[in-house]
Design a protein around this nucleic acid. Structure first.
Lengths: 211, 211
DNA sequence: TTGGTATTTAAACACTTGTTTAAAAAAACC
DNA sequence: GGTTTTTTTAAACAAGTGTTTAAATACCAA
């Protein structure tokens, strides 16, 4: 008869594999990452990845889904906050900035893997529904009806906020090469740019000439 | 003794390989594309890719460099046009939009391959120097000194223009899933968004309160 | 300790990878 | 025509891929 698995000892290595795989997948993508890369990064035998997770694909999907959650959860949380729209948009941008500062490859990774295999998004529909059902859209329409905000669809506001931030990290290597920045200079650059973006987006939405 | 190669007959298949490889690389990336994928897409024997190009890497680099040129050349051309700064920025955005409409994976592809192997940019330094030596930066500083443009560095203006366009295509699949758009709806969306972006960026730069 | 379970290992598996070979077919030249 | 060169092919190569196996080790309750 099977005893309940004592997860305390095994969890340690299972977690080591997960975390190592996350690093490797984020860096090289699904195609570029090999089972042996992951095993080496985790410091374990190759067979163990298939012992704990059943295949490379399964391991990947676990990590992918978690990263999609990470990508959207904080966003949804802010969208449902009971604060002014102006603060909300600024906070959304700020959050995206911090998220990508902590996970510079996150956006690049997700966009890529979704592009290569759109079906992978299927398991993440839930999070996206939450975005639609959040307070954000109705709050935006309300402010527009009051004449406080330029008439615009949420569909356009969201990419407006995120594109300007995520593009910095998606094209990090390119920006650094193009403007000959080192890591320190790049950090200065994105800090300044974030403020400019918040300024530009909010003033475009809120400070417009009513006709 | 070697006769000069009659390129007319061979060029046909060499070109077929190049064009097929471009399609496959753009779609799957270097890691995801196999020699057999390319051969099949071109409808030729596998050995021919290494007969005309010496390796997968060499074939890739030719294509990659050409695509980097495509990515930047039109941009540089506009930056050196003798037109007003306002028109120039609008035209840069418009050009980027058309470029990516014709090559939806271009930005994603370049950002990715540069990230995976930054050395690949080495051969493309020339184009990037042209950007620095273009009329754009001095024209911007001139307009700023006249008080016509908000004080800002070119370093910040360029991502401002391109991020908002390229992000639409980088995240195309994601946007379509999230807002449940088909191809036609997506086309409408990006057309509208492009106009909004031009409006937002130019009004942010030019219509500011002078203090 | 002992026996049974969970974990880890080295080795091998079948298959795909990029690349090469050597022969066949096509083309070009006299 | 015949000969040489270029182009194309099928087949094979060694190395790398994800995955499995079977034996070894560690663990733990009885």
């Amino acid at each position: 008869m099977k005893k309940p698995m004592d997860c305390l000892s095994s969890k340690s290595t299972e977690l080591r594999i997960r975390e190592a795989a996350e690093r490797v997948f984020l860096e090289k993508g699904f195609d570029g990452a090999t089972s042996r890369d992951i095993a080496e990064a985790a410091g374990i035998n190759i067979a163990l990845t298939n012992y704990y997770f059943r295949s490379k694909e399964k391991l990947f999907m676990q990590i992918f889904e978690d990263l999609v959650q990470l990508f959207f959860n904080g966003m949804v949380e802010i969208m449902n906050k009971p604060i002014s729209l102006r603060d909300k948009i600024a906070e959304l941008i700020e959050h995206d900035f911090q998220l990508l500062k902590n996970n510079p490859n996150l956006s690049n990774f997700i966009m890529n893997e979704v592009h290569r295999n759109p079906d992978r998004m299927a398991s993440c529909i839930g999070v996206m529904k939450e975005i639609h059902h959040s307070m954000f859209e109705q709050q935006l329409q309300h402010e527009i009806s009051l004449g406080n905000v330029r008439p615009i669809k949420a569909l356009h506001v969201m990419p407006m906020a995120f594109a300007n931030i995520q593009f910095l990290f998606i094209g990090k290597q390119m920006h650094m090469k193009m403007w000959q920045m080192d890591e320190a200079a790049f950090e200065d650059f994105i800090n300044q740019h974030k403020q400019i973006v918040i300024d530009m987006v909010t003033s475009y939405l809120f400070d417009f000439k009513k006709e």
